[in-house]
Design a protein around this nucleic acid. Structure first.
Lengths: 124, 124
DNA sequence: ATCGTATATGTCTTGACAAGCATATACGTA
DNA sequence: TACGTATATGCTTGTCAAGACATATACGAT
């Protein structure tokens, strides 16, 4: 469970992070909002805290948890390398859809892929 | 293993995706480059294909795998909600670097990082 | 037809982890 | 003090995924 990617692989943890985006919350608030059991919330918070995604302060018996930016930025940095790639593809798709939708004569400047081949896509 | 987040939680799969960013590759190439066993590569590629991260075309006995953008965009969309947050927490220089990354300009870098608080942080 | 290469798949084992439930700890209040 | 509330932690169980190894399938060449 070292990497930030593994941490956010868990849906409940992602939900907690999204919730904390609004404001800091106590364990009880998270528990009620996300309809999880209290131990589950505490355990996920522990994982998130140890990975640096959240931090907490003590308020009497409660603990208030809030978001920390660094680990998510790390994910974002990894993702960044693909942005150039997918914007190229989306542009190609947009051009294509645009041609179809308007049914007008448009010249193709460039193909996204030079030769059309049979592609094995995802399972259905 | 439905969600894109679970798919990219696996380090070898992330390595494959990064490798495919360069160009399409055969299973054998991936195997050698990433020093994984062939069945391991094939299995990871299957997972990636079924989740829409890659597609393949047949070239004689080989299969050439290449990247598909959509699933990573999905991850990026989730991540997007946090950008506003962390840019508020980032210092000015990091914001600056972020801008640089976006429009591929080049400049000098330095280091700064303030964060004073009484806080229960990550494990040591 | 046989062989070699490239890739996919099946089986088995092992380890990680999430959930549930019970219990411990910490703190405020009467 | 005793009690209620808030949170953390311990234990057990079921699930699932990844690696290793063996085997199957597909194709080209001889």
């Amino acid at each position: 469970m070292q990497s930030a990617f593994e941490i956010i692989a868990e849906p409940n943890r992602r939900a907690i992070l999204s919730l904390l985006l609004g404001s800091e919350r106590s364990v009880g608030e998270i528990e009620r909002r996300l309809r999880m059991t209290q131990p589950a919330v505490s355990k996920h918070l522990r994982v998130l805290r140890e990975a640096g995604f959240v931090e907490s302060t003590v308020d009497a018996q409660r603990r208030l948890y809030r978001l920390r930016p660094e680990p998510l930025r790390e994910v974002d940095i990894w993702l960044a390398q693909f942005r150039r790639f997918w914007s190229a593809h989306m542009d190609a798709l947009e051009r294509h859809l645009d041609r179809i939708a308007r049914d007008q004569t448009k010249k193709t400047r460039k193909r996204a892929r030079p030769n059309p081949r049979t592609v094995i896509g995802e399972k259905k």
